[in-house]
Amino acid sequence: MKNYIAIEAKNIVTQFGQSVIHDEVSFKIQRGEIFGLLGGSGSGKTTLLREMIMLQKTSGGQMLVLGTDVMKISSKMAQKLRQKWGVLFQFGALFTSLTILENVMIGMREYTNLPDWIIEESALMKLSMVGLPPKVANMYPSELSGGMKKRAALARALALDPKLLFLDEPTSGLDPQSARTFDELIVTLRDTLGITVVMVTHDKDTMANVLDRFIILGNKKVLFEGNMELLKQTRDDELKKFLS
């Protein structure tokens, strides 16, 4: 592959009215990387994630996702791009009117010509992959706990075998053991499918065990870019908070 950059942010500026959230934020995410967006609350992590998946517009700068500028994309191209990524929202955002299985199948139903039995079996497989027992398949989201909803939502995000996976606080609200299983799962998926993973996270263990690289946002800028090793050498007090 000639292009090894999955996502490139160039001088991103985000403004809500008078308040500036990002002031010329730039970074690159390599293909096959598990990349973290970190920062205190209100530092605009989730906003940045939403800008990558075209849910929010930037006020300035360029956001290149898989080589295309998402700000200048035609609606047809945007639709194609959307099929190449999976998104896990913080609270799952499952469709409440569909069963868990239907939630996972809906993407495959709409966008592939796969026979029904394959769709059903691979949806069940995805559910099992994220650690859900088969009996939840015919349940509705309202019958599941928060953690289970999140897993089901990950299964939905993975349904189309995306190239890019966006996770908004994937391990928040999970018990420590499930959180680690979740982490392992994400690493396995990256190793096997070559997915690029972009996640917003606060979880210290996830930071240490899973993330290849991350950026720390603060004061409207990128305060830090690198990995855990580099962060440990920092003398900046602001950054040391992320280590403790």
């Binding site: 079996e121 992959m129 088969p134 096997t192």
Partner: peptide, 21 residues
Amino acid sequence: ESLEKLFTVCEQHYPEKKEKP
């Protein structure tokens, strides 16, 4: 190697029997 790895994961999670409504 990568195919083997994914194959193992998929095999572990292959739905043995479908939960029919």
